[in-house]
């Protein structure tokens, strides 16, 4: 394995500070890891423009690069815009395991005003209802399950 590839694995294994056990590799926000001499350049794509976790992730990535004995150069690139479609299959499973309903495929940005049916991450019932379009973070909406009465979060398609 090349140095860049093993550093890439190290970076992609960093956990998101706000999503338990979901790595930034699972989220698909690591665009590239390249090494030139003693410097490792990591390109990250923020999920939401104002996501406060972005700064923490930047620092975590810089720490990981330093732990590999390299000088970090961590940059944010916003284009192409991140989509929830970039979340890996393992990411979906980990979200589900954390009690967060994973996102359906993202459509073209549009406003249909129809809220999608969401299956409860605990009991799988589709008899759920929307509480709020936002949750503890901008990327999630708050739902409650009518079958098992558990409130849960839903990772919105973006």
């Amino acid at each position: 394995m090349t140095v860049a590839a093993s550093l890439g694995d190290l970076v992609r294994d960093i956990e998101d500070p706000e999503l338990p056990h979901v790595t930034i590799g699972d989220l698909g926000i690591v665009r590239s890891v390249t090494i030139h001499g003693a410097t490792a350049t990591v390109l990250l794509t923020p999920t939401y423009t104002g996501c406060p976790a972005t700064e923490q992730i930047r620092e975590d990535v810089a720490d990981a690069v330093r732990s590999a004995g390299l000088e970090p150069d961590v940059r944010l690139v916003i284009s192409p815009a991140w989509s929830t479609d970039w979340i890996t299959e393992r990411g979906h499973q980990r979200l589900l395991a954390a009690g967060i309903a994973p996102p359906p495929p993202a459509d073209e940005p549009g406003v249909t005003f129809v809220d999608p049916p969401v299956a409860c991450p605990r009991c799988s019932s589709r008899r759920t209802r929307l509480i709020s379009h936002f949750g503890g973070t901008a990327c999630k909406a708050t739902y409650v399950c009518n079958a098992c009465s558990e409130p849960f979060e839903f990772f919105k398609a973006l």
Binding site: P46, I78, S79, A81, S83, P109, V111, F113, F134, A138
Partner: peptide
Amino acid sequence: AIAAKSVKETAYHLRHSRS
């Protein structure tokens, strides 16, 4: 590029304020 990022977020804002 800023627009491509912002349009997705703003779609949710509009859904929320509209409802």
